[in-house]
Every structure is written in structure tokens, then in C-alpha cells.
Design a binder for these strands. Structure first.
Lengths: 253, 253
DNA sequence: CGGTGCAGTTGATCCTGATCAATACACCGT
DNA sequence: ACGGTGTATTGATCAGGATCAACTGCACCG
């Protein structure tokens, strides 16, 4: 049980926070925001961009957005909810590759093989903006800003992939994971110290290449060290700097 | 000591093989081959492309091609030799991110931060083709084929990054590593069963997130299992299928 | 020549995190 | 209320690989 005082911020659950911002601010924090709404483009070009955007969803928790091997036609920007991507090796074991939060883009690793190389599964109810990729790359050919945005998105994801590389201790991995999540929420305009873990302990463990039991233990340890408070999946970072410090060797890239 | 009979192939060292092919076939196997020489483009466009290519090197083993934080201006295609990329965390420990063989491209992960996020270090004498990235992306805007090639290269590298993810045993990692190397050599027109390991045991260990001692032990084990023959850094795959089988859980992506 | 330094191999021991197992708890439909 | 199911936590034991250490082979060099 958590003490009563620090619980106060949770009396307004994060989900309401999310909902409140979605309508007003989503597009501003989306990875394509500049392309979609920012000025600087001519009106006709903006119109073209909006033509290739299409809203998709909702998908309920557990539903597949796409599956390994599906033909690649579109990339997805998460509007609300959260998504995990994963592959299943031939022995049937799942490998979680990543989590995607509102404003983030899924599907870029499908460009090369021209098929989705992984599954994307909703962790909770999810809405998307769907961008037709052929249309988008055609547009990119005429709008350098769009092309550059795509290059940068791809390159950025490349940098992210090395986050879980490295032989670091369970504590370091977890600290880096929480700090990364917090940062990503903060960038999108959500609280960077208090948020909901959309994924199960098992998914976290799988992503960090740990056992679920180890995840539990590390989180318990963090709690006794007063680094975090945690009730179920509601997380409060008590000492973000301490966590960042702990995970620094993973985050410095 | 290796038995005399199986050593025969090594009487002609791989390096001569490399040299023989470089002049004639390099461009054909380079990641940019289609862009650089393939037909289908108009002559003026080809001329433009050749304008932005510039030969660089040689760099001797141990020399830096670029360093973390250097401003990003060009991407590099390896012509001869081999390169490792690595980052150094704040405690001064090196983390090897990848190895690059002839025909492969370095520097794509620098697009987003606009600075190189890692060091690139020659493992042996290296020559490059250097492509100005601003010029290249400008060209991409006019030549859809170039744009698509860049997208695909980026996306492909994205898929590669997950090779060393996953909690696999030392044997599996090593088998997957050797199989991957063999495949990449084969794709570029070199022998896929017999090649030179340009990197030290320490670098391999670092890349695979193992201790150097473990690398030694695994390689010894592979040797007694008649999967490979190994003398110094000269490698012969005796049972490529066996190795592939062993590493399959890592390679299936 | 012996000296020095580095890369690699092999052996002995230790520790982190996986695995097996039991329990607690929330949520569900009947 | 009752199981039934899925998720999370905690404890006990075990093993794979890290670490420490000794030793070899080899290149380089004064």
C-alpha cells in the first residue's frame, strides 16, 4: 500500500490527462506535426499531405494492428493508447522489440523488406493516423521537408535500437527504461514523473531481456530505495535524477 | 595446429582474393551500385551522382574515420578493409556497435542528431567512397530511385540492429555472428565459408556482449565440434548449416 | 639475444539473474 | 459465494558466463 499523501496526484488518473490533451494537442506533439500543420508549406501541399492521412482504430488491448509478413503499405502514428511490437521465433517464443506511445511512429522497419517484419499489438485501446507510404514517399520527392523528416525519423529509430544492447545489470536496464519512458512522455507534453505503465511486467521483462520475476524484484528494490512509488501499473518517479544516474551508461547515446 | 590437408585453401590468403576483386567488382556489389552504375538513369543524372562521390583513405588499422560528436556531412561506403563502430560510455568503457565490410555503408545513424553518434575505427587498411549527404538528399528529391535506396538502407540497418538483442547463450550468439558474417561476405561476392576475421577476439566479445575469455572458449568448442577450423584470425566454416541451425533463433528476423 | 608487450587460451572460483515453486490479489461469469 | 483465470510478488535453488589468474605464443625492438 502506498502512503496517502503521495497518492494525491493519482486522484486524477493519467487517462483523463491523456484524454484532455488528445483533441487539442495531439497533432502538435506528433512526429509528423511539422509536416501536418506547421506553416511554411503552401496550402496545396498541406492539402496533399492531409489527403494521405487517414484515421484508424480503435483497436482494443490485445488486438493486432499488423502481423509479421503483412504487406507494407502504410506507417502508423499513435494518437492514443500504446502499442508493442514483437517477433515470434520458430520455437514460438515472443520477443518484444519496442513500445510506442502517443505521437510515435510504427512501421519504419518495414520499408526495406516491404513487409512488416514484426507484429504490432495494442496494449490498450489505440487510435492511429495512418499514412500511405507510397503516397508519402512520392510527396517526399517534392517536399524536401517531408523527405528530411522521414530520414530523421528512420535515423532516430536506428539510434534507439541500441538502447537495450549492452550487458548491463537488471537495475541499470530498468532505470534506463523508466527514464526513457519518462522522457518520451515529457516530450509529448505529458507528465514525465507520473504515468501509467501500459505494458505488463512480462512485456517489460521480455523487452529488457530479463525474467518477469527479476522485473518485480528490481521494482520492489527501487521502491524501498525511494526511487519510485508504484501501485499496480501506476508509476510515480520520486527521484528521476537518481534513476537517470543509475541508467546513465545506457542512456548516454 | 591445423591438419595439413584442410589448410590448402589458405595457401592463397583471402587478402589476395579481396584485392583481385576490388577493382573489377567492387562497385557492382556496393550498396549504392544501382545508383552509381546501373542503367535506367539518364546520363546527366549519373553524372550528378558521380559528382558527389569522392574516394577517401587509406586509413590504417586503428585510425579513426570519424569520432563521436563530429558534424555529420557524409556517409561512407567501405571499398576495402573493415571498420568497427563504437561508443564510449562515461566510465570510459567501449561498446562495439557493429562491423562494416566492403560494400557496406557507415554513418546513417548520424542523420538524425546531425552529428556522428559513434566512433568509426579502421580494423585494417580501409578505403572508402564518401558521399556528401546534403548533395545526396537533394539528389534523392529529384531521383526517386535514390530516395528509395536510402529509405531501404536505413530500414535495413534498423532490422540488423536487433541481431544482438535477445537473451541467447554464448554459443547461439557466436554461431549467429559467424553465419551473419559469412552471409555478408557471400552477398558481396567473397567466399562465404572461408574468410579473415578483421577484428580481435576482444572486439567480437564486446560486440556480442560476452567476455573475451568466453569467446575463446566458444570458438575452441566449435573447433572440437568440427563446426569450424580456426588458425589465428583465419576462419573456415566446416559446417555452415550446423552453425546456421545453432544461431537460428537469432537469425530468423 | 633477452626483454617487453599484446593477443589469445585455459583453468578455478564467484555472482547475477533464470528457473521452479508457492502465494496473493483482482476481475470475470455463473 | 464460488471457482477460474491472469497478473504480480516473494522465496529457494541452480547454472551460465564474468572475473581473476596463470601461462603460451608471437611480434617488435633496442
Amino acid at each position: 500500500m502506498l502512503p496517502r499523501k503521495p497518492l494525491d496526484p493519482w486522484l486524477e488518473p493519467p487517462s483523463s490527462l491523456v484524454d484532455a490533451r488528445v483533441g487539442a494537442h495531439f497533432c502538435l506533439t506528433c512526429a509528423f506535426s511539422e509536416a501536418c500543420i506547421a506553416g511554411g508549406y503552401d496550402k496545396p501541399e498541406q492539402a496533399e499531405l492531409h489527403c494521405l492521412v487517414e484515421h484508424a482504430g480503435p483497436f482494443r488491448g490485445g488486438e493486432y494492428i499488423f502481423r509479421t509478413g503483412d504487406p507494407f503499405r502504410s506507417i502508423f502514428a499513435v494518437r492514443t493508447g500504446a502499442v508493442k511490437t514483437s517477433v515470434v521465433d520458430k520455437d514460438g517464443r515472443e520477443q518484444v522489440l519496442g513500445f510506442y506511445l502517443p505521437g510515435e511512429v510504427i512501421g519504419l522497419n518495414a520499408i526495406y523488406p516491404d513487409r512488416f517484419p514484426c507484429n504490432a499489438i495494442a496494449l490498450e485501446t489505440v487510435h492511429f493516423c495512418r499514412f500511405s507510404f507510397p503516397a508519402m514517399s512520392a510527396l517526399a520527392a517534392r517536399m524536401p521537408a517531408v523527405q528530411q523528416r522521414l530520414f530523421r525519423l528512420l535515423s532516430k529509430e536506428l539510434g534507439m535500437a541500441s538502447l537495450l544492447a549492452g550487458d548491463h545489470s537488471a537495475d541499470v536496464r530498468m532505470a534506463a527504461f523508466l527514464t526513457d519512458l519518462a522522457h518520451r512522455y515529457a516530450v509529448r507534453g505529458f507528465s514525465g514523473t507520473q504515468f501509467h505503465l501500459s505494458m505488463s511486467r512480462g512485456d517489460i521483462a521480455n523487452y529488457l531481456r530479463l525474467a518477469a520475476e527479476t522485473v518485480s524484484r528490481v521494482l520492489s528494490r527501487f521502491r524501498t530505495q525511494r526511487l519510485i512509488e508504484l501501485e499496480g501499473r501506476e508509476l510515480l518517479l520520486l527521484d528521476p535524477d537518481g534513476l537517470r544516474e543509475l541508467g546513465q551508461s545506457l542512456l548516454s547515446r
